[in-house]
Design a protein around this nucleic acid. Structure first.
Lengths: 189, 189
DNA sequence: TTCGTCATGTAAGAAGTTACATGATTTC
DNA sequence: GAAATCATGTAACTTCTTACATGACGAA
């Protein structure tokens, strides 16, 4: 087999974004579909989500393509299937990460949307909306900080990048709060 | 008609998020469907999108519900329909903005996703990914700054909140770049 | 006369979520 | 023995986008 990586036409070039997430999560150590879902919730949820209904078909697809190997690993009488990344699977991850392609960034934020239209409100109600947005960011920071120990543990095991994305998440909300507070001060005048 | 606002059961309580966007944009002065689409692209695109295929049905719905009044306003032989917000429409906006409800925030960022898994790469490739994410944020800041004059103009016409959300957008990307640079410095050691 | 913009409308399809369905195991 | 968690799988639905369809107007 002549160094069969996952280039286009190589047979594994038809992976969707959810496929790469599943593949990457198995690479990071999440062994079952259930565990992948939980790991996603703990680690990348704030910038990417994936539902359970996507995971199991994706695992099947990745196994058929030879990027994952699965085997039955029941816990007692409870069925379970665990997976490992194959060399081809690791090559596919690496190709995907190195691929030069647009990196779409989509934000869909009901808070900013309402804030944008807040001039339709009187001062008090607009201030209330601003407070709601700030408090939401504060809660988010709390949740992100709570998952910091897990990211620090990963740093010694695998590397520092999960911690980096977590720090970016925290910084995003800190920046939001800071701009809101600056706005409050200047509009008080 | 006894002070018909848009409370639940009041007949106009079934508006979707795109409906509120359309309603809000007409309130802000976008008069036709075409103009709404353009205004969305210029102003809220970075935290909310809406496609043309959603706008026209939404305008019809809002007119049927009495939140907008439309009238034909052809330009020459080119047909056009322009809209105005009714008092009931303004009440609906105001109710929506004041409504205490969760403010869902969804981020879907292929850049952060790849960065999260970047420990699967060697140092050089991981650094390249980091650079790509930083450059993307720099481009975004450029685009946001380009729409700052429009937001400043709106400030004197309508109010300061569009400028606030724009500043938040810029601050978000500045924070991303800053954290990336801090990470580069500490990982160089 | 061709291209970009103005202008509206819809059909088809992609993508993703919710909800349902099932059952074992552990914890309280 | 009840509730939470572990574990997998899928049907139905919602939501949104892409693409198509149509045509006028203005500028080069």
């Amino acid at each position: 087999m002549p160094s069969g990586t996952a280039g286009p036409g190589g047979g594994a070039g038809d992976l969707t974004a959810p496929d790469y997430v599943v593949l990457g999560m198995v690479w990071l150590g999440a062994r079952s579909g259930y565990e992948i879902k939980r790991t996603v919730e703990r680690s990348i949820r704030f910038f990417w989500t994936i539902s359970q209904a996507q995971i199991y078909p994706s695992l099947q697809h990745l196994e058929q393509t030879g990027l994952l190997v699965g085997r039955a690993d029941p816990q007692g009488r409870r069925p379970r299937r665990v997976y490992d990344v194959t060399p081809a699977g690791h090559a596919a991850i690496s190709d995907w990460l190195r691929r030069e392609e647009p990196l779409p960034l989509e934000l869909r934020d009901a808070g900013l949307l309402k804030l944008f239209f807040a001039d339709a409100l009187d001062r008090a109600d607009a201030a209330g909306l601003l407070t709601a947005v700030k408090e939401r960011s504060q809660r988010q920071i709390g949740m992100l900080r709570a998952s910091q120990p897990a990211a620090e543990a990963l740093r010694t095991e695998t590397g520092p990048h999960p911690l980096l994305t977590l720090r970016i998440g925290i910084a995003l909300h800190e920046a939001t709060i800071r701009v809101c507070e600056e706005f409050e001060e200047t509009s008080r005048l």
